[in-house]
């Protein structure tokens, strides 16, 4: 019955690409879902991909059991400051970060499992008025934070037990950085999107701010999700929560833009808009490889193939509760979709 109700609506001619409900997990002790993610967890010599769910006051780790069921392994209890988001650390095991705060991030904590002691721990990584945070490869964390006078863009290295001593600062742009993305295939390159709709590029090794490039006035408050360099161009996948609807592009949720970093000129490569007849604007979403997913204001979840610029699947709002979260697992073959009541559904894509 549940599987039937959650079967995604496939769009015309795209039946080979669909979402198949694999399993559901529900934390009976929590009523709200703040965020969901995946992490690698290794214990007793066995390593597997686990699901991490966050509600305002706690974060839980779930491991797969037989028959597509999930069992809760551990719950980290947090203090009085609410959890805002999970910050996954790519290519790590037994480590995940979380951001806590009220309207904006006030602190970042590391949640970890020590296989030596068979113990779950947490430690404080950073405090401040933090505007954006991203987990980077090699157990690093980049964040932007503001004081009254200036912005600080900092990289923190993490050990298996918490914050390492050796940190690094990146040259800040004048405007506030609201999101980061590693440049795939370029170990030392990082991009960010700013409050005045610019893309900034850093050299992570030297901390230099290499370039600032404007995205365009039609797409305010763009957020970068993914970046890669190819043939001398920097391709950036952006979401547009406040884009204006146009006849030619509809209501674009995601755009792929090619920048020439030498000249700061850009061209739009692909728009990913909702198919005609579907209402709703982008609320929040995630990008992995060429797959993008977004929760819409209508309560639906939409999936796009960014190479085709085409919506490939749509999860309609559930009668028992609209969708609130959509995240790819560490591979784009698995989608985690969270409902407002805290239920998380896993789909094979």
């Amino acid at each position: 019955d549940v599987a039937g109700r959650l079967t995604p609506v496939l769009l015309d001619g795209l039946r080979e690409e669909s979402l198949q409900l694999v399993s559901k997990l529900k934390d009976s002790s929590s009523s709200c879902a703040v965020d969901v993610s995946t992490m690698w967890w290794e214990a007793a010599g066995s390593r597997g991909l686990c699901v991490v769910t966050a509600c305002e006051s706690s974060v839980s780790l779930w491991k797969p059991l037989a028959s597509d069921r999930w069992g809760k392994v551990y719950t980290w209890q947090l203090g009085e400051i609410p959890v805002i988001q999970i910050v996954p650390l790519p290519d790590t095991c037994n480590l995940v970060c979380i951001a806590l705060g009220d309207l904006e991030i006030g602190e970042i904590r590391l949640l970890l499992y020590s296989s030596e002691n068979d113990a779950f721990k947490q430690s404080l990584v950073k405090t401040g008025n933090i505007k954006a945070v991203l987990g980077l490869k090699d157990r690093r964390l980049v964040s932007s934070s503001r004081t009254m006078q200036e912005q600080q863009v900092e990289i923190v290295s993490l050990s298996e037990t918490g914050r390492s001593k050796d940190g690094q600062t990146l040259m800040p742009p004048e405007e506030t950085v609201l999101a980061f993305a590693e440049v795939e295939g370029m170990r030392d390159a990082l991009v960010g999107t700013t409050a005045v709709n610019s893309i900034v590029v850093w050299n992570l090794k030297t901390g230099q701010l290499l370039k600032k490039m404007h995205v365009g006035y039609s797409y305010p408050a763009s957020i970068c999700h993914r970046a890669y360099s190819d043939s001398g161009l920097l391709f950036v996948v952006l979401s547009h929560p406040h884009a204006k609807e146009s006849e030619s592009c509809g209501n674009p949720a995601f755009r792929v833009i090619a920048f020439n970093p030498k000249t700061a000129r850009s061209v739009g490569v692909m728009f990913s808009s909702l198919p005609p007849g579907h209402a709703g604007r982008y609320l929040e979403g995630d990008v992995k490889d060429a797959s993008a997913v977004a929760v819409l204001t209508s309560g639906a979840v939409a999936v796009w193939d960014l190479l085709l610029g085409r919506c490939t699947a749509l999860l309609p709002p559930d009668p028992e509760g609209s969708w609130a979260l959509a995240r790819w697992a560490t591979t784009s073959a698995c989608l985690l979709a969270g409902q407002q009541d805290g239920t998380v559904c896993l789909y094979r894509y």
Binding site: M171, M186, D188, A189, V201, N203, T206, G207, Q208, L209, L210, K211, S229, S231, G232, L233, L234, A258, N260, P261, K262, T263, R265, S266, V267, V269
Partner: peptide, 23 residues
């Protein structure tokens, strides 16, 4: 994309910008 839209393209843009940017 063509060079007329984007200007001259360099495969080594990252190294070139790193050499030019203030440190």
């Amino acid at each position: 994309c063509s060079e007329s839209d984007l200007g001259p393209i360099s495969l080594n843009w990252f190294e070139e910008l790193s050499a030019e940017a203030p440190s």
